[in-house]
């Protein structure tokens, strides 16, 4: 799997997004094209499309391809989804199958309910 910036490349991924709109910066580190990686990528995309429409930036990184990035980001487990922004940094390890834990950790649960 290739490292790919998936959704709108409005700003440089390393810099916190500027502008009035609240932008989420997410990075997903996976190890190879395994079933687990596939699941994680799928769920991350779902999350973004459902809860963060138009205000996210998701980067998927294969640690086999870019081990240096894994080192720099202090990745131990894979898959790991890192919320770089907004602060504080949050790390979600696993294939993201536990949606409640994911949304709870991202503080999107109440938000989603309020909208829904």
């Amino acid at each position: 799997m290739r490292a790919a910036a998936v959704k709108p490349g409005t700003v440089h991924p390393d810099r916190p997004p500027a502008g009035g709109k609240k932008l989420w910066q997410l990075r997903l580190y996976v190890a190879g094209a395994t079933e687990r990686s596939r699941q994680a990528v799928l769920r991350a995309r779902q999350l973004c499309e459902v809860d963060l429409v138009g205000q996210y930036e998701l980067q998927v990184i294969d640690v086999y391809q870019q081990p240096g990035l894994a080192r720099d980001a202090q990745i131990v487990a894979t898959p790991t989804l890192v919320r770089e922004f907004p602060r504080p940094v949050r790390r979600f390890i696993g294939n993201l199958s536990n949606t409640a834990a994911l949304l709870g950790g991202l503080e999107l649960l109440t938000n989603a309910k309020a909208i829904g």
Binding site: Y29, A40, V63, A70, R71, V76, T78, I93, N98, G105
Partner: peptide
């Protein structure tokens, strides 16, 4: 190589492995 693990910022959301650690060690 310093491996930093901060339990408070880690949430488990499913199955995982330590491939990240292996990759870093290998590198």
């Amino acid at each position: 190589e310093h491996v930093h693990l901060e339990r408070s910022e880690i949430h488990e959301t499913g199955e995982y492995d330590l491939e990240g650690l292996f990759v870093r060690l290998n590198l």
